[in-house]
Design a protein around this nucleic acid. Structure first.
Length: 590
RNA sequence: GGACCGGUAGCUCAGCUGGAUAGAGCAGCUGCCUUCUAAGCAGCAGGUCAUUGGUUCGAAUCCAAUCCGGUUCACCA
């Protein structure tokens, strides 16, 4: 049980014993004491003052004295300022905490809860390479899965690849027209970029054709439909759906190029999946559910044979679930896939890491699944994240302002190399060690930058500022870890006495370390890695102050040396674990 | 137009189940490397928490209205 909860439980119990009022620990508001006051944690008394009709000072005195008498091992002092009861936690409590966890490698992790969660993330299209927005998605999804794993949930990481449809045919057509038989191998271009280039070429050619038609007197609307390259693409989609061999062959070939490229990027950024779904296999799912929905009266069929669901009573609109020609729409596939996932993995919760532009879609999806009575329905959770924007505004592929994932990672790693060389601290590293260090720092900076803000909020990515390695950044935390390891290489804790008192910075560190498990819990329940990022940064900052102020290896006494070594060891462990759930490695030296 | 999301320091963001004088980082300014890594530390300066009203012992936080920005409401995916 963490300290805050102990304070709450003790306070609720004390109020019961003193005044015979029944409160849940949850009813007691406990905050960290503001630095300008004496104490560690503060019980806010106002609500009890009202309830008991007692003066704040009297109540505070009675409660404070009672707490100290009943829990001398937990509390060592108190003071009352206005309606706030500031409690000092006994040094012995923190010392005990430090000693029992310094070498505990699994500190922060929870026992299995028995629940199983699926996290769907990344979900790329096979017509273009990954960009900055995908990076936020990948880092978020991976981290949320890792946080849930650490807090005792079984995890299935999954990815739904959008590998079919008109947009895929566009790159295929463009390659047929303009490719001259080139391949990623023959050109030396990474497969996903290679295919993406043809997607761009399609749009260029299409635009040109539309313009020509418009110039010859056609309306723009008609020209967009009549452009030969578009008609060819639509025919190709029909051919694909009919399974025409040469189209299927081309489709497989080009997709395989993309996957080769994705594999490299995923490997580099550390994304991985337990199960990959391909839309080419799942796009027909859900049809039987349309029948079932009609039978149950959840859906209605209109005269033209299209099938709808009326969600106006739920404050939404009417939504189409099947076209008049009997083909299914996107949401129908999603319903079908939700059912499929359920059959295959039987998870308690299914998290979809998808941008907030699809909020409405997921609201509808969940509602429809609930109305259909699918067992997976209530477990659907849309982890909606905000778009990544540039200082100039949104990224637009048409304007060429899309920040490519591979390029960005390259740039970050390069800057890491440059800065490391400037500082010259690891001149004895082998080339392989250096390469690993640059990747660790560069990716650490990037991941931390994208994960440190609330996922729900849109964020601005400033290429100039984002590559900062000072302050609230991944490299600062990595650096703190490396400094600790440097100390620990010289001497390790021996398990000897750590004395019986704490200096302010020693205590501040202990207090912060003790919060790690509850931070992980909070991050898990809110699906929010930024909680861990912020916590880990603050911990590193506290350690840096401590490190500057107090000598560890040459401490004043043997007790102090042992105490500080244990604190250092525990801090290194928490930093490492905190960063690990963010997908960020920490170096031994940098 | 309906629904949803956001507006906190020059910039990027915390804080939002109501609690003490609203916090970080960057940028700016001062100091600190003969002692464990200065990718650091200590300090200064920087605020009408979009606006107005309400709820109460207490509001950045809750409620209402307004202003500004965004997303969405396709027989697209």
């Amino acid at each position: 049980m963490n300290v805050v909860l102990k304070v709450k439980v003790a306070s609720a119990q004390a109020l019961k014993e003193l005044y015979n009022i029944d409160l849940q620990p949850h009813d007691v508001l406990v905050n960290a004491t503001k630095p300008e006051f004496e104490g560690d944690y503060t019980v806010v008394l106002f609500s009890f003052i009202k309830l008991l009709k007692k003066a704040p000072d009297v109540l505070g005195q009675e409660l404070g004295s009672h707490l100290i008498n009943r829990h001398p091992d937990l509390f060592s002092g108190f003071n009352i300022i206005k309606g706030f009861l500031n409690l000092t936690i006994a040094d012995g409590y923190w010392l005990q905490f430090i000693q029992s966890n310094a070498a505990n490698l699994s500190f922060g992790a929870s026992a299995s809860t028995g629940s199983k969660v699926m996290v769907e993330y990344s979900s790329p299209n096979t017509n273009k390479p990954l960009h900055l927005g995908h990076l936020r998605n990948n880092f978020l999804g991976w981290s949320v899965a890792e946080i849930l794993k650490t807090t005792g949930h079984g995890i299935v990481k999954t990815c739904v690849v959008n590998d079919r449809g008109i947009h895929i045919c566009k790159s295929m057509i463009a390659w047929q027209y303009f490719g001259n038989g080139d391949t990623p191998q023959s050109t030396g271009i990474k497969g996903d970029h290679f295919v993406g280039d043809y997607y761009v070429k399609f749009n260029e050619a299409y635009k040109k054709q539309v313009k020509e038609l418009v110039d010859s007197g056609m309306t723009e609307e008609l020209a967009e439909k009549e452009a030969p390259i578009m008609k060819a693409t639509q025919q190709m989609l029909l051919d694909w759906e009919a399974g025409k061999p040469e189209v299927m062959e081309l489709w497989r070939r080009m997709n395989s190029w993309v996957y080769e490229g994705f594999d490299i990027t995923y490997q580099r950024i550390g994304s991985n999946f337990d199960k990959v779904y391909y839309e080419s296999n799942t796009y027909l799912l859900g049809k039987d559910l349309v029948e079932e929905g009609l039978f149950k009266g959840v859906f209605v069929k209109k005269e033209d044979n299209s099938v709808w669901i009326d969600l106006t009573n739920d404050g939404l609109d009417e939504k189409l679930v099947q076209r008049k020609d009997g083909t299914s729409v996107y949401i129908t596939q999603d319903i079908g896939l939700a059912e499929q996932k359920q059959k295959e993995f039987n998870v308690d919760q299914s998290i979809y890491v998808v941008g907030d532009e699809q909020n409405y879609h997921f609201k509808v999806l969940k509602l429809i699944c609930q109305k259909l009575g699918l067992p997976s329905a209530d477990g659907i959770y849309h982890l909606s994240y905000g778009m990544v924007e540039l200082p100039s505004g949104k990224m637009k592929s048409r304007e060429g302002t899309v920040v490519d994932a591979d390029d960005l990672v390259d740039e970050m790693v390069n800057i890491a190399r440059q800065k490391t060389e400037e500082l010259g601290k690891v001149k004895d590293f082998s080339p392989a060690e250096l390469a690993e260090l640059y990747a660790t720092i560069g990716l650490g900076a990037l991941k931390f930058f994208l994960l440190r803000v609330d996922p729900r909020k849109k964020m601005i990515f400033n290429p100039e500022e984002s590559i900062d390695f000072h302050g609230f950044t991944g490299p600062f935390i990595q650096y703190t870890h490396a400094r600790i390891k440097s100390v620990l290489r010289k001497s390790m804790p021996e398990g000897s006495s750590i004395g019986n008192s704490l200096l302010p910075l020693e205590k501040a560190l202990a207090i912060e370390l003790e919060q790690f498990p509850s931070v992980l819990q909070e991050a898990a329940s809110e699906h929010d890695p930024s909680k861990v990022a912020i916590y880990t940064f603050n911990l590193a900052k506290t350690f840096s102050s401590f490190y500057t102020e107090h000598s560890i290896g040459n401490a004043e006494t043997a007790d102090k040396k042992e105490l500080r070594l244990q604190l250092a060891q525990l801090t290194a462990g928490v930093i490492k674990k905190g960063m690990a759930v963010l997908g960020i490695k920490v170096p031994e030296r940098m």
